[in-house]
Design a binder for these strands. Structure first.
Length: 342
DNA sequence: CAATCGTGGCT
DNA sequence: TAGCCAAGATT
């Protein structure tokens, strides 16, 4: 145990806070540094789930709408599934919305309506993985957990010149980060590192010249700093094709609910066939190209008659289709259909 | 470990 | 512009 190591570690947090206390981003789910306010664990959890693989700009509006409509975890726990899924439409990764409801109901039913205040307790909830458990424990409950997201991975991989490719590097990053976490402000520490990664230690063209921790950064000044953290090569995306059916009657269109498992699981959608590697022979009214994470899709809209409607589904007023909560793929297709001059 | 799972913004 | 990427979780 050396006093020296302790001094160096405290120096890192001190320099980081010196910057964060004046430069922290103002965000709807955040309690400003220095504020006496206590973060609401429900809002912290909600934000962290929405922010999984999703940008701050994309989340802001959804966070405001969700917390206005369901102000407490008890409110969310009693919400209808369809309402929550529709409210999530467009944000992506829809398993998060299904897990959001499952988590709220678990908190209400098994924890007396209060979120667990430990990393371990949080980690057991649906949709709460290593990152989210650590983040909520630190930000909402002041636990000295080791929070590692993609921003912090980048900051630490560069600061310590960790050249092992992800995801294997995550172990080393956590080990390097653990002794830096200050006991008095673990939540601010995590948020400060994320702000640093988002605004200064960026993926491309990092602003090393104004970085608060550049003094001891091992990658500072390196021409290849953008190379860090090293990531595994990406696989080529296949192209798929599918048909969607426009079944219309009396100003309404037939919508279905997609199965919980698989793409767009649990979301309302137009009925249609499976997505395949070869284009359909049938020509459609309109079609859209849409890029998913691991394949691209061309979806073609064709008319079908009413008797083709499946038994499970509902008629939705075409004039109010925006309120149906269709995911972006189908919203693009229906927008194009309705804009089309008939 | 590696595949699956959305979307929009940025360069 | 076409690829890269984001406050990851689950299986």
């Amino acid at each position: 145990m050396s006093v020296q190591t302790s001094d160096i570690d405290e120096g890192f947090a001190a320099r980081l806070f010196g910057w964060y206390d004046r430069a922290a981003r103002v965000l709807p789910w955040r309690v400003p540094p220095g504020s006496a306010a206590i973060p609401d664990p429900y809002r912290v959890w909600m934000a962290e789930v929405m922010l999984q693989q999703t940008t701050v700009a994309a989340v802001a509006g959804y966070f405001e709408r969700f917390t206005a409509r369901w102000p407490t975890v008890a409110d969310l726990a009693t919400a209808d599934d369809a309402d929550v899924m529709a409210a999530w439409a467009g944000l992506g990764y829809y398993a998060r919305a299904r897990n959001l409801l499952a988590c709220a109901r678990a908190v209400a039913a098994d924890h007396g309506g209060l979120f667990p205040d430990t990393e371990e307790g949080l980690r057991a909830l649906p949709g709460v993985g290593d990152y989210t458990a650590a983040a909520v424990a630190a930000i909402a409950f002041g636990r000295p957990s080791v929070v590692v997201d993609a921003n912090i991975e980048r900051v630490i991989a560069r600061h310590r010149l960790i050249e092992i490719p992800l995801p294997a590097a995550k172990r080393d990053i956590k080990a390097a980060l653990a002794p830096l976490v200050p006991a008095d402000r673990p939540g601010d520490f995590a948020q400060a590192l994320m702000d640093l990664g988002a605004t200064i230690c960026t993926v491309r063209s990092p602003a090393c010249g104004i970085c608060p921790v550049m003094a001891d950064c091992r990658a500072r000044g390196r021409a290849d700093i953008e190379r860090l953290p090293v990531k595994p090569p990406k696989k080529a995306k296949p192209h798929r094709h599918g048909l969607a059916y426009w079944i219309e009657q009396d100003g309404r269109v037939w919508l279905v609910r997609r199965p919980d498992k698989g793409m767009l699981g649990g979301m309302r959608a137009l009925p249609g066939g499976d997505w395949t590697d070869t284009p359909p022979r049938e020509s459609g009214i309109v079609s859209v190209d849409h890029g998913f994470t691991h394949f691209d899709l061309t979806l073609t809209l064709v008319r079908r008659e009413v008797q083709d409607a499946a038994t499970e589904g509902l008629w939705w007023p075409i004039s109010d289709l925006d309120a149906a909560g269709l995911p972006t793929l189908y919203r693009k297709l229906t927008d194009k259909m309705l804009e089309r001059v008939q």
